[in-house]
């Protein structure tokens, strides 16, 4: 079950790598911000879609130890919200996969061997975009109620599918 959840966003990832998708965010109404393209997100009254929420979880598990709480950077590694705004999807995904030696003494590790992080790069990107363009605040977001149910249904379906395998 867990594995299915972790990998559910891979098609988006593959699509985005092909470079066919452009990104933009739009304020649909006062309380709702959405972003299209790689790292699509919805922020509504401070709540988010399930993929963006998954991105928050992955961020706190895999990235926060160096990049600081809520994507805001630390004395050790930069603010990722700004990185996402400046460098875009391909650079973001590529750096997570390949790592980067910034300068002597400053190294970003490669996550190529970590299937959990690799499978969640689009969700991480969604979370970062939601924090930036989407105006999402700090801390653990909640999932938009109507989407919570959809998400649970999807999980159950995935569970059934994997049980059948």
């Amino acid at each position: 079950m867990t594995v299915c959840v972790r990998f559910r966003a891979i098609p988006v990832f593959a699509l985005a790598l092909l470079g066919f998708v452009t990104t933009h965010a739009a304020a649909d109404d006062e309380n709702r911000m959405t972003g299209e393209g790689p790292g699509a997100f919805i922020v509504e009254d401070g709540k988010v879609d399930p993929n963006t929420y998954e991105g928050y979880l992955v961020y706190t598990r895999a990235c926060m130890a160096c990049h600081g709480p809520d994507g805001m950077g630390s004395s050790f590694a930069p603010n990722l919200i700004r990185v996402v705004e400046r460098r875009g999807w391909e650079n973001f995904a590529g750096t997570i996969a390949a790592g980067r030696e910034v300068q002597p003494g400053q190294v970003m590790p490669s996550f190529a061997d970590d299937p959990y992080v690799m499978g969640n790069i689009p969700n991480l990107y969604s979370y970062m975009r939601a924090r930036g363009e989407g105006g999402l605040g700090r801390g653990r977001p909640r999932i938009i109620e109507s989407m919570q149910e959809q998400d649970e249904e999807k999980d159950e379906a995935a569970e059934e599918a994997s049980a059948e395998d």
């Binding site: 401070g46 130890a65 160096c66 600081g68 709480p69 809520d70 805001m72 950077g73 630390s74 004395s75 050790f76 603010n79 605040g137 700090r138 801390g139």
Partner: peptide, 19 residues
């Protein structure tokens, strides 16, 4: 500056009363 303190506190902590 640095260490765990620098990682945790550089951006400031979450405000528990936020909102």
């Amino acid at each position: 500056v640095g260490g765990w303190a620098g990682i945790g506190l550089a951006a400031g902590l979450e405000d528990p009363e936020e909102g």
